[in-house]
């Protein structure tokens, strides 16, 4: 089943001269993990916001084409209704804390109260979200007392408790330390394994290569390519789009290490497999 259908999406922010998105089209199946890459200003965040209807509903501006999320045309729906189908996690953990709740537990309830979930159901969902993100032990703490990594996981928990079918994450680890980013990636992988469709914008290319099923490469508001990590990172023109392949791929390119189809490895595992040089063999 197609969870997301984007058709010739064009968008221009109010007062801007150039289009932020220039006719982007792609489709995503249920349960896929999509990594979105591209340089700053390539339209990644705009795309994320278009998937949940903040573009155009929050900003206004000129809009063309269509985004259909779980059967709902987002431009014609209320953001609050779309929120029950598609969730969005932002870059800055701090501004995602509502500030109106005193504990982590109540903070997660915020979205559920808004969409009118019954109390008993609410508690189930909060417990599940706390568990999945590994933040149960902080449930009585004040949200502002958490570390960046914990706060970002709380933000994700607040979204997934609303049980959307799709979760969109816009550079969720950019402000976190290595440990914090790893925690977030683990948590997202758990969601993906539970069958949630994941769209994740991220600069940490080695992680995208390891976790994503498919990679969407954006440049200057246009979709350059949408394919498996191996195919994307094997391209020889990545430089032109301001992205760099994983360091493993870079080394493999220099040493001409490929698989049978002539594609380069993108993870440590693939590298050692293709080069026939795993630790166990030495």
């Amino acid at each position: 089943m197609k969870h997301l259908i984007v058709e010739n999406l064009k968008y221009c922010y109010p007062l801007a001269k150039d289009l932020a998105l220039k006719g982007v089209s792609f489709e995503v199946d249920k349960g896929e993990f999509i990594g979105v890459i591209g340089s700053n200003g390539s339209g990644k965040s705009t795309l994320c916001q278009a998937l949940v209807g903040l573009v155009p509903n929050f900003y206004k501006g000129a809009y063309g084409g269509k985004v259909i999320a779980c059967g709902m045309e987002v431009a014609k729906s209320e953001v609050a209704e779309i929120a029950t189908k598609v969730g969005l996690v932002f870059q800055n953990p701090f501004t995602q804390i509502t500030g109106s709740k005193l504990t982590v537990y109540e903070e997660i309830a915020f979205g559920l109260e808004n969409i009118g979930i019954e109390r008993s159901e609410m508690k189930c969902r909060i417990e599940h979200a706390l568990d999945l993100l590994g933040i149960s032990k902080f449930k009585d703490k004040n949200p502002f007392d958490l570390s960046g990594g914990q706060m970002q996981r709380l933000a994700i928990a607040g979204i997934i408790a609303m049980e959307p079918d799709v979760i969109v994450l816009d550079e969720p680890t950019s402000q976190l330390d290595p440990q914090g980013s790893e925690e977030v990636f683990q948590a997202v992988q758990n969601l993906s394994q539970e069958g949630m469709t994941v769209i994740m914008v991220e600069h940490k290319i080695e992680k995208i290569a390891a976790y994503a099923d498919k990679v969407l490469l954006l440049s200057d508001g246009e979709l350059v390519d949408f394919n498996t990590p191996k195919k994307i990172f094997s391209r020889s023109d990545l430089d032109e789009y301001g992205v760099s392949p994983p360091v493993y791929t870079k080394i493999a390119k220099n040493l001409h290490i490929t698989d049978k189809l002539g594609l380069y490895p993108v993870t440590i595992e693939e590298f050692s497999q293709y080069s026939g040089q795993g630790r166990e063999k030495l």
């Binding site: 903040l54 929050f58 009118g116 019954e118």
Partner: peptide, 17 residues
């Protein structure tokens, strides 16, 4: 924006934790 994606402007009847 973060409040919007948590259905802050929802027209549904609100419940309480």
């Amino acid at each position: 924006m973060a409040l919007e994606v948590r259905a802050f402007s929802s027209s549904r009847k609100k419940t309480f934790l």
